[in-house]
Design a binder for these strands. Structure first.
Length: 283
DNA sequence: ATGTGTTCCTGTCCGC
DNA sequence: TGCGGACAGGAACACA
């Protein structure tokens, strides 16, 4: 599923199709995803112009001319498909509807944006634009990892006294926004920090080093998403899932790529989720 | 307040 | 080819 880089890639892919464009017709094909959709969602979307497409953590925020903002979360399996628009040099018609196409936005000019989510852990809601930051799903989210508020002093303070493993702490959206299982594994591998270490017991110098590593891991993934956007989107209009190479995630049994390490990537389970890390160099 | 386990849902993959 | 189980990129929620 989408973590911050994938969500940002989806957002960027949607900008040329949605920003400044009017939703001619919204189709809502079921009453809910993870939670019930807001009342009359299709009516409140139809006829609105998308004035801006923003992102906060893993949420895409579509500001509407009505003064409301559509809040979108992709959950584990949510995907956005674009059809009927000029994609690169090709023109695509709308493909046949697929299972789990839950929300379809027909845009003035003929483009279509389809939200498909097999597992339905995704979510959509509407909130008055000035109150989006106070929305219950967003209010307690921590700083954006690529913003100025996420810095060395902040992270040290946020983890102070925490007995939970650093892996769990970095997954906690209240501490830092947007990280998920993949990029936490990747960041800890690069920073050579053992994911089992208690967050509050890690030397401040190591936490300082972790901050730019997190930024780098995310920035590089966004960059990879950007390049995949140019190629992949032309193929079938699906946004956000791109080829990316990981050093630790999903590589159980493979040699550790850290130079001169010679270790092997192992897998453990922490709070019910797989952690991939090098048992040799992540100390 | 903090930490941990459960839960929502479908699809895919792997071993027998 | 079928079947069962493990697993999947999230995170709210209930409970110790």
């Amino acid at each position: 599923m989408p973590e911050l880089p994938e969500v940002e890639t989806v957002r960027r892919g949607l900008v040329p199709v949605l920003e400044g464009r009017r939703i001619a017709q919204a189709h809502v094909n079921r009453p809910d995803l993870r939670w019930p959709f807001p009342d009359r969602m299709a009516d409140r979307l139809t006829g609105q112009t998308v004035t801006a497409l923003r992102r906060r953590s893993k949420y895409i925020l579509a500001d509407l001319s009505s003064g409301e903002t559509l809040i979108i979360h992709l959950g584990m399996s949510g995907r956005m498909l674009i059809s009927g628009a000029q994609l690169g040099q090709f023109h695509h018609d709308h493909p046949a509807p697929e299972k789990h196409d839950h929300v379809v936005l027909d845009i003035d000019g003929g483009a279509r944006v389809t939200f498909n989510d097999a597992r339905r852990f995704g979510a959509m809601d509407l909130a008055p634009t000035p109150l989006v930051e106070a929305h219950r799903l967003i209010a307690s989210i921590g700083p954006e990892p690529l913003g100025n508020a996420f810095n060395e002093d902040y992270l040290i303070a946020a983890l102070k006294g925490r007995m939970t493993p650093i892996k769990a702490a970095l997954l906690d959206q209240r501490i830092v926004a947007g990280l998920g299982n993949i990029y936490v594994c990747e960041a800890l591998h690069r920073a050579r920090i053992n994911p089992r270490h208690k967050a509050g017991r890690i030397a401040p110098a190591r936490l300082r080093a972790l901050v730019p590593v997190i930024r780098d891991v995310l920035s590089e993934a966004i960059e990879a998403g950007g390049s995949s956007l140019r190629d992949y989107r032309q193929a079938d209009g699906e946004l956000g899932y791109f080829q990316h190479t990981f050093r630790a995630y999903g590589r159980e049994g493979a040699p550790c790529p850290t130079p001169d390490c010679g270790g092997t990537i192992g897998r453990i389970v922490q709070s019910g989720r797989s952690t991939f890390y090098c048992t040799q160099c992540q100390t």
